[in-house]
Design a protein around this nucleic acid. Structure first.
Length: 270
DNA sequence: CTAAGGACCTGTCGGC
DNA sequence: TGCCGACAGGTCCTTA
């Protein structure tokens, strides 16, 4: 589930519940995630106070005076606020129990997610080579132009490369390319500056609109009733293979690009 | 340096 | 109904 908009929605949802709270207990039921969950957290985290809840790319950063708890939701992860005594489900791997009686609970069936600890002072290796945030000023029009120069890579793979720009997942890569009228397979180096700028703009638009959508279901999400419904938004191409293009009516096609499903309009996207 | 593919996991769905 | 393969919103790591 988690693309950048959902991670941001999660961040906004959990922040008010955990910020300023002291950790009373850490429960690790399943340490085998993408990387082993550091078991020292069980002994070391209790007593510490959550100072900040931030996001970098799709990583959630829970800041303490002594360091940062890094959480990634992988492909199937979600974080929810629950009552600390709520019975755990099959894939509820980690609980951060807080002194106010609630717990931040990580659920992740596929276990591609991660929970890591980074002591204060040094940036974590995973975060140190990331490109600019797509919704920050650092993602200006030059970013794609520079990154695309001389590259033969398919443009879709370029915008999904975290070293170029972070947070553009499969769904929104497809959508942004559709809005820009660019064929996903087009060599990045063979796209005009003007079109690359349009693509950058559409990445911003698509992501911020999705965050707004996530925001509408924020309440339900935090209440523990379910997941954010942002993806109910109108997707133009993703998941619509074989259906009609909303622009021209042609049949949307699906191909594989770097093992990922890629949907586009063969007539609108060149 | 770039590019391509495998790896990590479980759950679900479509076809036979 | 049951089994099997393909596929799913991510991304690091190895290999060429």
């Amino acid at each position: 589930m988690p693309e950048l908009p959902e991670v941001e929605t999660t961040r906004r949802g959990i922040a008010p519940h955990i910020k300023g709270q002291r950790v009373s207990e850490v429960i690790i039921r399943q340490p085998k995630l993408r990387w082993p969950v550091p078991l020292e957290l069980v002994d070391d985290l209790p007593g510490k106070v959550v100072q900040s809840v931030e996001r970098r790319a799709k990583y959630l950063l829970i800041g303490f005076e002594q360091g940062t708890l890094i959480i990634h939701l992988g492909m199937s992860g979600s974080l929810r606020i629950v009552q600390a005594d709520q019975e755990e489900g099959k894939h509820d791997h980690v609980d951060l129990v807080l002194q106010n009686g609630i717990a931040l609970r990580l659920t992740d069936p596929r276990r591609f997610g991660a929970v890591l600890w980074q002591p204060k002072g040094v940036e974590h290796e995973l975060l140190s080579h990331l490109g600019p945030e797509p919704l920050s000023e650092a993602f200006d029009d030059q970013v794609l132009v520079t990154a695309a120069k001389g590259r033969k890579t398919a443009i879709k793979q370029l915008i999904m490369d975290n070293k170029v720009v972070v947070g553009v997942g499969n769904i929104y890569a497809n959508e942004a390319l559709f809005l820009s009228g660019i064929h996903p397979k087009r060599a990045a180096g063979r796209i005009s500056e003007q079109r690359l700028c349009r693509l950058a703009e559409n990445i911003r638009i698509v992501l911020s609109r999705a965050i707004q959508q996530g925001g509408t279901t924020l309440k339900d999400f935090v209440g523990g009733d379910g997941k954010p419904g942002y993806f109910k938004q109108e997707l133009n191409v993703y998941g619509r293979t074989g259906e009609c293009c909303v622009n021209c009516g042609s049949i949307l096609k699906e191909i594989r690009l770097g093992q990922r499903s890629t949907v586009f309009c063969p007539d609108c996207q060149r």
